[in-house]
């Protein structure tokens, strides 16, 4: 191998701050609405916050902008290093579940950044929710670094650093109203184009009531469900969704029934039946999918829910659609 020149470059450490700029806040807003969904990324590697020394703590996070920014904005005035893993622009919790915020990437990133030569203590503070992807004893074995799991929320870090231990409250996930509300814009942005098309088709085929019914069923699932989650009765998300969808459908049942007061009773009953068949399964389906956004539903439970409720949703919806088609044909043929 003569002629090969080995160049030893000093590991690159990028400076960062605890202040969030206006454009970064705008970027967070866009991320919440799903705009450029996988483009909110930070360059993986080592960052210096303030003026860290070899004794300063090292925090580990994902290369999703919201994760990195939540961390650095929570620890103003603390001189430290931040090791950003390459999680493909995905947050800590989801990336850990997929294994990208994981033992392999962590060990790899420690080696790439030359962290062992930068800090003297060889201790890493990881977010607790990263533990799903990281095996602390494996990391110790492969890199010599000891993993310390910090609190669930970055906002608890200043308190955590005082004693280097988390209170039971810091170790628990919760799902507050605020935490639930920030989730719906991204879902809304995703379904809105389809909802507009479906409502337009229903408007032309059946009229404004059907178009409004579609919008109401979808919005109940996407907006009302996350807000009302703890207050809706029963434990299963599907049954909660059926209840919410049923309540949402009631005014439409009455309006459809009252539509033609001179029409035959059977026709009025069929009209009233259509919304209660079509709307609740739509809301329930969206509600069931919200399990993926929570941090407390088990895979076993969700699978059981799908097994129990998916056939009910499918049959109700199909029957309701058949009724809508029949009603449309009757209307077009002059009934």
């Amino acid at each position: 191998m003569s002629g090969t020149i080995f160049t030893f470059t000093k590991p690159k450490i990028r400076p960062t701050t605890s202040q969030l700029t206006l454009s970064e806040r705008v970027d967070h807003f866009l991320a919440r609405w799903g705009i450029n969904r996988s483009g909110h990324r930070v360059e993986p590697g080592l960052y210096a916050l303030g003026s860290p020394t070899p004794e300063s703590p090292v925090f580990v996070t994902a290369n999703y902008t919201l994760s990195f920014d939540a961390l650095r904005s929570s620890i103003p005035g603390i001189d430290c290093y931040i090791l950003v893993l390459d999680t493909k622009g995905v947050n800590v919790w989801c990336a850990a579940g997929k294994g990208t915020f994981g033992t392999g990437e962590l060990v790899n990133r420690i080696s790439i950044t030359g962290l062992a030569g930068i800090v003297s203590h060889h201790v890493l503070i990881l977010p607790q929710l990263g533990a799903t992807g990281v095996s602390a004893h494996e990391v110790k074995k492969r890199s010599g670094f000891r993993v310390e799991y910090g609190p669930v929320r970055a906002s608890d870090l200043p308190e955590y650093l005082k004693t280097r231990s988390a209170t039971p409250g810091m170790r628990r996930v919760h799902f507050t109203l605020g935490e639930r509300i920030v989730l719906f814009p991204v879902e809304l942005a995703k379904v809105l184009p389809y909802l507009v098309i479906i409502s337009a088709v229903l408007y032309l085929a059946s009229g404004p009531l059907a178009a409004a019914g579609a919008a109401a069923a979808v919005l109940a699932g996407i907006v009302l469900f996350p807000i009302l989650l703890p207050y809706l009765p029963t434990k299963d998300f599907s049954s909660k969704g059926f209840i919410l969808g049923g309540l949402t459908a009631l005014p439409f049942v009455l309006a459809a029934y009252q539509y033609g007061t001179d029409d035959a009773m059977w026709l009025r009953l069929v009209r009233g039946l259509a919304p209660i068949l079509v709307m609740p399964p739509v809301t329930a389906f969206i509600s069931l999918n919200f399990t993926g956004s929570t941090t407390f539903t088990s895979v076993t439970g969700v699978r059981r829910e799908i097994f129990i409720y998916a056939p009910v949703m499918a049959w109700m919806f199909a029957l309701g659609i058949v009724l809508l088609i029949i009603l449309t044909i009757l209307r077009l043929t002059g009934w």
Partner: peptide, 12 residues
């Protein structure tokens, strides 16, 4: 424990 992503879409 049998862990998984728990994405209902994926399971559907």
């Amino acid at each position: 424990v049998e862990s998984g992503v728990g994405c209902a879409y994926a399971m559907f």
